[in-house]
Design a protein around this nucleic acid. Structure first.
Length: 248
DNA sequence: GCGACAG
DNA sequence: ATCTTGTCGC
């Protein structure tokens, strides 16, 4: 599939400008989606994560059976440091290469990180959505957070783009991720008694659909099968690169 | 002003 | 993200 994009920014200022420009093209909702296939995206890093190489993996699964439909990978040098709020500029260069090697077009892309629940409402999932034009949403493993030690009342957390409380203990229970009156996403329990995940919309899909899909893709583990598969594939390839590199 | 900050 | 052993449980 084609993933047209502007030249990747070299520095933070440039990245912020590009992010602001692209933000105008996000569609943070969409019609109810009945996805037959869903793709998981992930990137693994070598060494300290700044001087080594990055390996991206995309795994397309059949939503009903969770069987692999197709996979694609790509690797390249790390070109941007990790900066909270600018994760996309670190992961997209190699991620888009992998996406372009896909011969099928997934019905939805599941990103490893946040969508609109972002300091400037334009997380990785939004960025991927705008570039591909496909429905996307993000499932993050940890809060994009700022803890408020002195916060009164129940242990609530202030997120870079929202606050939330603990969801119920059952699978499917959730608590809204909010910022004032706007809902930015959900803290969703995918497995009973297990730490919840953070779901937020990226592009052209609604929050209910993103929530339902996340649950459908995580029947057995905390993270969606799409994310697990992409994570494992990128790690295996990284290991392979290491072995080849140390064998001159 | 300092610090907290997806992966 | 990555560095890392054993251990408890289904």
């Amino acid at each position: 599939m084609l993933v047209p994009h502007d030249p990747w920014p070299a520095g933070e200022a440039e990245a912020l400008a590009q992010q602001e420009a692209l933000r105008a093209r996000v569609e943070p909702t969409g019609p109810p989606l009945s996805a037959r296939t869903a793709a998981g995206l992930d990137v693994s890093y070598e060494d300290d994560g700044d001087t080594g190489r990055a390996v991206a993996a995309v795994v397309v699964l059949d939503v009903a059976t969770l069987e692999v439909v197709e996979t694609a990978v790509a690797s390249g040098p790390v070109t941007f440091p990790y900066v909270p709020g600018l994760l996309a500029f670190r992961e997209l260069p190699v991620l888009t290469e992998a996406l372009e090697r896909l011969t099928v077009t997934p019905d939805v892309l599941v990103c490893d990180g946040y969508g609109v629940a972002h300091p400037r409402r334009f997380g990785l999932a939004c960025h991927v959505g705008v570039l591909t034009g496909l429905p996307t949403f993000g499932v993050a493993k940890t809060a994009f957070v700022v803890r408020e030690p002195s916060a009164p009342g129940p242990a609530a957390e202030q997120t870079a783009g929202g606050a939330h409380q603990e969801p119920g203990p059952r699978r499917g229970d959730w608590a809204p991720l909010t910022d004032g009156t706007e809902t930015l996403g959900r803290v969703l329990r995918t497995q009973p008694g297990v730490k919840p995940v953070f779901v937020s919309v990226g592009h052209r899909v609604d929050l209910d659909t993103a929530t339902a899909l996340t649950l459908a893709l995580a029947p057995r583990y905390r993270l969606p099968e799409t994310t697990r598969q992409a994570d494992q594939l990128s790690r295996r390839l990284l290991g392979g690169l290491d072995a080849a590199h140390r064998r001159p």
